[in-house]
Simulated assay, not measured.
Amino acid sequence: MTGKGLLSGIFISLIAILLPLGNIAAAAEEIDMESYQKFGSFLSDFRKEKSIRALTAVIVKDGEIVWEQALGTSDDESDVPATMDTTFGIASVTKPIAATAILAEADKGGLYLDWLLANDPRWEDFCGWFSTSGIPFGGGGKDSDGTVIEPVDCERKLSLSDSLNMRVNGAVGSAFVYNPMTYARIDRAIEGAGGRPLRAIVRDNVLKKAGMENVALGWHDPEGGSALRLLAPPFTVQEDGRDIKASHSDDDFRAAAGIRASARHVAQFDIALDSGKLLSADWMARIFSDDTLPLRGDYRWGWFAQDWQGKRLYWHSGWEPDRYSAIYLKIPKQKLSLILLANNENLWWGNPLSAAEIHKSPVAAEFLKTFASPDRR
């Protein structure tokens, strides 16, 4: 045990001696409250430094929301304060939500994970262009850290499973390469093979079961409720630190992105997932396993996975350039999760395409240091 951990243990022991048993939990909660306040102060400073208009955060512990914070305003006239009901474009945090719904649909026999991306009648033309493009995760190239990225092999019989696990680049058995464009075509492959529309799959298998009301699955969602009315408009930060209101993307809902939701909504998903309402125990064990990971981490069924100081982390980032960003981080062994949503891109830290490195995010690093250091269980 480190010196800090030893002192912490002594402090808790003294509390146990000095306080009646009924007050020990309250004292421990007070200690945690100091950590929450410290993290909240960090987020407040970070928001100002990064010119983020609206930032909301939720911490989930042991299946319930234990802390939340709404900072800033959701407009450019400073008269609409951000609240915990404020919604955002959650960008690629859509991926684990959509993946969960797709796996549940497969369990019910509504689709098969070995269905081919080529069931989309436009796949052949798309792949022909994509695999020869200058886009690194399409035509190949080098990652931001110099790692070689293989092109998409259109001769392979690429499946839904390949896409959900980011295994569409290179030969069978290659390491993952984050490929959002093939992920975005999952719904087309499902419908091309005779499956239900993705919007119905996600609403029935996730939103309804998790109690996630007033969530918009894209711009054209007829059941989106007040998600668009409460939406924080996106902003683009200029080089001098000033920001200007950005236009909204006209992209609709795909497995890769498109959900408009609040941080509380994502927390509802997190709680329902961990409680077993969304996936079978077999699927949960398969996704959130303790198996040995590659050195650079992995991507599985809609989640990045990596090890950090003896802790297994599962996470997803969201980055809609010039518009929105998000972080969703789970530490299953601690039953601890963090959700952050912002209406500019500055939560994004530039994670490589072929590695999982959330510890390099300044916000995630502060959270991990505060709540998940090796001496915390």
Rank of each mutant, 00 (worst) to 15 (best):
R47I: 13
E49H: 12
E49I: 13
S51N: 15
A54G: 12
A54S: 12
L55I: 11
L55V: 06
A57E: 15
I59D: 02
I59R: 06
V60Y: 02
V60E: 13
V60L: 06
K61V: 01
V66Q: 12
E68N: 11
E68F: 07
Q69D: 04
A70T: 02
A70W: 02
L71T: 01
T73R: 11
D75E: 00
S78E: 13
S78F: 13
D79S: 10
P81N: 15
P81Y: 15
M84G: 08
F88I: 06
G89Y: 01
I90Q: 05
A91K: 01
S92P: 08
T94Q: 07
T94N: 05
A98E: 05
A99Y: 11
A99G: 04
A99L: 06
A101E: 04
I102K: 04
L103W: 13
L103D: 09
E105S: 14
A106Q: 08
D107Y: 04
D107W: 10
D107K: 11
G109E: 12
G110F: 14
L111N: 02
L111I: 04
L113R: 07
W115V: 00
L117Q: 03
L117E: 07
D120N: 00
P121M: 03
P121G: 01
R122M: 09
W123V: 01
C127L: 08
G128H: 07
W129C: 05
